[in-house]
């Protein structure tokens, strides 16, 4: 009778250990989408000025309009 109890406890312990191996963390590694993580481009500030935009529009009119 006692040996049956010991065997039952042993089986239970083995089952618990085996099932524990099936568990895994359900929290995946998530990156924040669309948030740029690099250095700031100095062009962004320079290009925000109206003069810079006007220069590009003049350039377009000069070099790309139909002949």
């Amino acid at each position: 009778m006692k040996s049956l109890r010991v065997m039952g406890a042993a089986c239970l312990a083995v089952a618990v250990v085996a099932l524990a191996g099936c568990g895994e963390s359900v929290t995946p590694t998530v990156y924040e989408p669309g948030v740029y993580k690099g250095d700031r481009d100095p062009l962004l500030a320079k290009h925000a000025t109206p003069e810079a935009k006007e220069a590009l529009q003049e350039r377009f009119a000069m070099s790309q309009t139909d002949r």
Binding site: E32, G38, L44, H47
Partner: peptide
């Protein structure tokens, strides 16, 4: 790794360090 960014006038650029 979110290495892309877009300028105010829509140019899509990226950071090769990332």
């Amino acid at each position: 790794v979110d290495c892309f960014y877009t300028t105010d006038d829509g140019i899509v650029l990226h950071d090769k360090d990332l």
